[in-house]
Each structure stands twice: as C-alpha cells, then as structure tokens.
Amino acid sequence: MAIPVDTLLLLFKGLALPALIAGAVLLLAAKPWSKYPGDAPSTVAGVAAFAIAFIVADVLTRNWVQGLDDLWPVQADRRLAHVALAAFLFGGAAASDATSDWLRMILRGVVAAFGVAVLLAFMITNQWTPAEAAVWLFALTLAIAIVTTVSSAAVEDNVSIRVPAVLIVMAAGVGALLSAYASKTLAQMAGAAAAALVPFLILAWRRRHSPANAAVIDAALPVLAGLLMLGHFLLEPPVASTLLLAAVPLTLCIDRLPKLDTAPRMVLNVTTIVLALLLVGAAIAVGHVYAPAPLEPYYG
C-alpha cells in the first residue's frame, strides 16, 4: 500500500526537517573550518538550534501563519513557537557559564513566566478566579524554573548523551499521552521537539563536553513543559500522568545520589535513561487506564 503524499510531507515537515535544521545549526556552530579541535557549539548555538528547528516545524507542520495577523494567534496551542522564541532569546544567557547563578534563575523564571502566561491565558479568562490564576501562574512558573535549573546544574560536570536522550524520551512520552487524549497536532509538535533533539545525541556522542548539549535544556524544557501544560488543561489527562512526565528531567540528577556519584559514565547513562523510560511508561500506563475509550472505532 502506497503512503499518501500528504503523509510523507507531514513526516518530512514534522520529523526530518527539525532534525535537519537543528543538525545544520550545530554543524555551522561547530566551525568545521576551524583549525582548533577544541571548538565546539556554544550554549547560544545549542539553544538556537533547538528553538529554530522547533519554530520552523511548528509553523510548517500546522500551517498556522497565513498573514501578519496570525503572528500573535488567539489559539493557545499556536503560541508554543513564541515560548521557543523566548527560550531562544534568554536561554543562551541562562545556560552560559559567565552568568551568575541568580541571573540564571531570573532568566529561567522570565522564560517560564512568559510561557505559562501566554499558553494559559485562556484559563484566566474562562475558568480561574484572579486568586486561583495568581497561585497557578506562580506555582507553574516556579516549578518550571526550578526543574530547568536543577536539571541544568546536574549535568554541568557530566553532560554526555543522557541529556538529549532523557529529553527525547520525555518528548516522546508527552507526544504519546497527547495523542492518546485526542490531539494529533500537539502530539506532532512533541514529535518535532524529539526530532530536533536527535542531532544533540550525535553531538554528545562526538563531543561529550560541548556546551550546546547542556544548554539545550534551557530551550527544550520550556517548550516541553508548555506542551505538557497545554495538554493537561486542554485535554485533561490524569494528573498523575502529567506529574510523572514533568518529573522525567529530574532523572538527570541521579548522579547526586550516594553510590551513583562515583559510578562509571556508562552505568550512569544507562541508569538515567532506564529511569526516564520507567517514568514515561508509568505515565502512559496511567493515561491508558483512565483514557475515555471511544465506543466506536475511529481512525481519523
């Protein structure tokens, strides 16, 4: 059976294209013409590679920019690109070694607050009281900023492949949950995020100490958190599934646990990835158990 052209085009725009763009940005930033073998993509390059790849995939896959009016869309799910843009503008500085710890936290807070505010504005309008809105906005902003900071701090000394691997596992889990709860387009965007992270996996394999590999946390986590928030409030999967997926980046901190802090890198990588897979598996399993099963078969 031949695959329809539309499907092939969608796969290209949603998966191949973000991977190609992120890869191209990293390759350019790696200065292949440089005489110095130590040259590696910087923090800014890491943030830019993910953000540009995600924004292009989002716009092309869902075809939502048809005029200048659409640049600030009313639909909350179309503001993920704006969150990626904010992460691009502030993430590079937040991930840089030259930035003080306090400033990093503030920059991450700004990105998180922006993401929460633009993605969940409809909850303020439609559902929350001003007091509830204040509590939700503050709590979610703080949670995203803390998870980003903790995850980023944990990998400073030991980046390796586990950073992109854990983020890819998280993106795939978010996509699977959103697809099960009836949004194919949000699931596609999680897929695009996962695809944009694949070049980082290759980069980590080739150059373990590339600053770009740690910096991608500052670009990818706000976007993945945004997808998770949108999915939670628009599609209403079980709270447990959302929390389990939100906890996936914290698996990067396991090298701070006793006995694992001195474990070989390979053991640490495998343990981290297995733990991330277990969390995602549990989130999907809980989501599957509580998913409202359609009475009739539905296939698009």
Binding site: L186, P292, L295
Partner: peptide, 22 residues
C-alpha cells in the same frame, strides 16, 4: 459526529478547541 472517538478529536485543539473556545 455519531462517533465518540471522533467527537473527542473534534473537541481538541486540532479542531474546535472547546476548552479554550467553548
């Protein structure tokens, strides 16, 4: 739409985005 699964999909942000636009 006479199909529960499709109705859920139609309510999602893919179509009518009913949580944001009831």
């Amino acid at each position: 739409s006479a199909n529960g699964g499709r109705d859920d999909h139609l309510r999602s942000p893919d179509f009518f985005n009913t949580k944001q636009f009831p």
